[in-house]
Design a protein around this nucleic acid. Structure first.
Lengths: 102, 102
DNA sequence: TGGCTATATGCCTATATTGCCATATAGGAG
DNA sequence: CTCCTATATGGCAATATAGGCATATAGCCA
């Protein structure tokens, strides 16, 4: 059992563990987006969004490239989108379990 | 865009965002495991492992049942295992990117 | 009942994450 | 060069997470 690989995978999960970052990844599913558009999308401070994006970039999930004075982010590993479906499944099962208790 | 669903999904990601919890989920892939075995596996304090398990349980990823004086945990949503593969892919791409810089 | 094992929880401290503000940096337009 | 827009970073305060110790709870066995 290689502990280090678990730690690295946990870092990827950590990068996904924020509402704003998931919103941005969902938007990047279709097309590359500039920071300005993503900022408007999540509705937080521009500096906050920039930090979220650097977290995704450091995790290896997105990459960036400049176009003029704007920076566009690109979804580098679309497989993370599979997680969205699984997370939905988890949430739905949890909801059912909660309701059965009531 | 439903913000709440992103928040719920982020909670699932957060539950996955720890080395010890990933190790335990990997072990639960094959069979249900008692807290005692999982404690030995991750090598942390029993109370720490118990807390990690309650995080996975609250997220809806695992369930538990008693057998005698032991509590066994069960992987309720095996789809989270797909995340392992994707995380590995992300890590590998990140490693390649790092190496190309050197 | 008493003692042993297994598990969960409260408490505390250390560390990490988040978010905004202020500011630095860079590119484009005039 | 100057101004404006776009983005990144440093700093700070608030909050969340993690981990161990002590302890409570529960089941089993004698």
């Amino acid at each position: 059992m290689n502990r280090n690989i678990y730690k690295l995978k946990a870092e990827v999960a950590k990068a996904l563990a924020h509402e704003s970052r998931l919103i941005m990844l969902d938007a990047l599913k279709m097309d590359d987006q500039c920071v300005c558009d993503l900022t408007a999308l999540v509705g937080a401070d521009q500096s906050t969004v920039s930090k979220h994006l650097s977290i995704l970039k450091n995790a290896g999930i997105v990459s960036d490239h400049k176009e003029g004075n704007r920076v566009f982010y690109h979804l580098e590993t679309p497989c993370v989108l599979q997680f969205f479906d699984c997370a939905l499944e988890v949430v739905q099962i949890r909801t059912q379990a909660t309701q059965s208790v009531l």
